[in-house]
Design a binder for these strands. Structure first.
Length: 359
DNA sequence: GCGACAG
DNA sequence: ATCTTGTCGC
């Protein structure tokens, strides 16, 4: 029997609840499901929480007030109510619960890093080329006289673990779209995620993945790489696809599943929503033009018939906006183009199978 | 000042 | 980025 302490925040402070559990299965993993009732502020509350063994966290699935002091322990009692997904550490009291609500105080050391990184990006920007590499021209124009290779990269994370992750490279032949090469590496992250500086967190590992193919399976070295994120669609015009492209001197493009806001320039405003609504069929696009700068950053693309939300394509290096968009479209069986989609799915599976709280 | 902010 | 379940529709 496991006991734990559930901390629920009320406007007036914190309330602790002692809970008992019962094991159950989710996706093959043993988890714990907990029902409990407690009183606070003179009222009764029923809570339904889950415990993840791997991350050692509990998450609140559902909580409702009741006039009855005894809970009804129905399985799957959490339908579609306002599921507050707050999580807290489960188990021994480690003393330091950093629960201060808004502790996003700007760290001066962080500001220093940002300044340094901005300078690096400024230098990198000078080297970006938005013209098609010869191989890009060939692969998009040649019917199927030759086989080319497109690589997709992605990194998957372990929930509740800010260090361990899995970096993936999956290479597809083009235009027939068959997997010809894949590589998954457990990695340890050292840098934080800061919007606008994603490359500094992930790029070293992607460079390593590229070097691996090039050295060990040269024949499958991709002529173009697709990155999960943005190319020039970025506040300083230097998204992670630009970093990778310039550092490797290889054609690179970014595919983002969400629009990256650029202050006073790119916004998810009403006009944008109308433009999305105007995308009719697979292959339809509209340009992403900065409202104040006039810069064309890339294109929003309806990548397949079923996709309701577009994908945001922008060149990183050695490829034009139009070619990047066409290539993404021709690689899309679903909303996310196959190279990135496979890298995403497979790296997640890799973590699930090979990573058990260590090793 | 606050909120918004690729992965 | 990460977690879950249920439901709808082709």
């Amino acid at each position: 029997m496991v006991r734990g302490l559930l901390i629920i925040e009320f406007s007036r402070g914190w309330v602790g609840v002692e809970v008992l559990d019962s094991p159950f299965q989710i996706n093959g993993r043993v988890e714990h499901q907990i029902f409990s009732t407690f009183t606070a502020l003179g009222r009764y509350f029923h809570v339904h929480v889950a415990v993840s063994q791997r991350s050692n966290k509990i998450s609140l699935w559902n909580m409702e007030e009741s006039s009855v002091p005894s809970p009804e322990q129905k399985v799957a009692a959490s339908a579609s109510g306002p599921n507050r997904q707050c999580t807290e550490t489960f188990g021994e009291d480690d003393g330091d619960r950093n629960l201060s609500g808004s502790e996003q105080t700007l760290d001066p050391a962080l500001l220093e890093i940002k300044r340094k990184w901005e300078l690096e990006q400024k230098e990198l920007k000078k080297k970006i080329s938005l013209e098609d590499d010869r191989n890009v021209e060939k692969m998009l124009s040649n019917p199927d006289s030759d086989t080319f290779y497109v690589g997709g990269m992605d990194i998957s994370f372990v929930k509740g673990d800010d260090v361990n992750a899995c970096a993936a490279l999956v290479v597809f032949s083009f235009p027939d779209l068959e997997v010809v090469y894949e590589d998954y590496q457990m990695i340890q992250l050292t840098q934080p995620y800061i919007p606008g500086f994603l490359a500094f967190r992930e790029m070293d590992f992607m460079i390593q993945l590229y070097n691996n193919v090039k050295e060990n399976n040269t024949q499958y070295t991709p002529q173009v790489i697709m990155v999960d994120g943005n190319g020039i669609l970025h506040p300083r015009g230097v998204g992670s696809a630009c970093h990778l492209g310039v550092l490797l001197d290889v054609p690179c493009l970014g595919v983002a599943k969400n629009l990256f806001f650029i202050e006073n320039d790119i916004d998810r405003n009403e006009e944008h929503m109308e433009q999305i609504a105007s995308l009719k069929q697979s292959g339809d696009t509209f340009p992403l033009v900065g409202s104040s700068s006039g810069i064309t950053y890339g294109k929003a693309l309806k990548s397949c018939e079923k996709a309701t939300k577009p994908v945001y394509v922008s060149p990183g290096h050695k490829i034009s906006i139009d070619s990047a968009t066409e290539l993404v479209h021709r690689c899309s069986k679903y909303r996310v183009p196959e190279p990135i989609r496979q890298a995403d799915l497979n790296s997640r599976e890799y973590l699930r199978v090979n990573f058990k709280d260590g090793s």
